[in-house]
């Protein structure tokens, strides 16, 4: 029949379903936040070099965001990006459509398990070093959907998260504060540190 040709193939659906179920099985525990090196004051002081300082300054001053905004917090991010809050003050006016050119993922919105493999793939495609800001209640913990059958309870189930910004949605000021926190975190990073 002609009609049947317009539908996607069942094999493709079953393959997708298998991938999602495998990801769910792998993601039962949250991934630890990459912040161990923040506490390692002694080691950091010994190894701190001016190279670190310059590199971290360059990295934190031009954080480019990847386009991966699954739900409604995206609008708050768009507001942050637009002229009233003007994210370009922080060297962030460019939003990259390609994950290869981005080093920050702002996970704005609810993530369903069906969408999770794509988000994980985008994260995996980003070049190191890369950071993640979990924006909004859904991104932090799943929010009001935390116990739902279809929603990922927090992005840290599938990707490591650096900064959590709560709110439903967070005000643009809150997001900017989160970005400032991330910049401070990057400033304390060392080339030879264990994480990143």
């Amino acid at each position: 029949m002609e009609i049947e040709e317009v539908y996607s193939s069942r094999q493709l659906d079953e393959k997708e379903g298998r991938q999602i179920n495998e990801l769910i099985d792998r993601s039962q525990q949250p991934i630890p936040d990459p912040d161990r090196w923040l506490e390692e004051e002694l080691e950091r002081n010994i190894l701190l070099t001016s190279v670190d300082a310059i590199l971290n300054w360059a990295r934190r001053s031009s954080l480019w965001t990847v386009v991966a905004f699954p739900a409604c917090c995206a609008f708050e991010f768009i507001t942050t990006e637009a002229s009233r809050f003007d994210l370009s003050r922080f060297g962030m006016e460019i939003i990259r459509a390609s994950p290869r050119q981005a080093d920050l993922m702002i996970t704005a919105g609810t993530l369903t398990w069906k969408m999770a493999p794509q988000i994980k793939r985008i994260y995996d495609q980003m070049a190191e070093p890369k950071w993640v800001i979990a924006m909004g209640a859904c991104a932090v913990s799943g929010g009001i959907f935390a116990s739902s059958y279809s929603v990922v309870p927090g992005y840290n189930r599938i990707i490591p998260v650096d900064v959590y910004v709560p709110g439903c949605p967070p005000r643009p000021e809150a997001l900017i504060y989160g970005i400032r926190m991330l910049q401070e975190k990057i400033a304390r990073q060392s080339l030879i540190a264990e994480d990143k």
Binding site: I3, E4, D13, E14, G17, R18, Y149
Partner: peptide
């Protein structure tokens, strides 16, 4: 129905979540 399969959830999902006894 010419193509009766899941549309919102993924293949391999167990159960039908809008049923009251889900």
């Amino acid at each position: 129905h010419p193509n009766l399969k899941r549309i919102v959830l993924w293949e391999g999902f167990e159960g039908h979540p809008l049923r009251k006894d889900f």
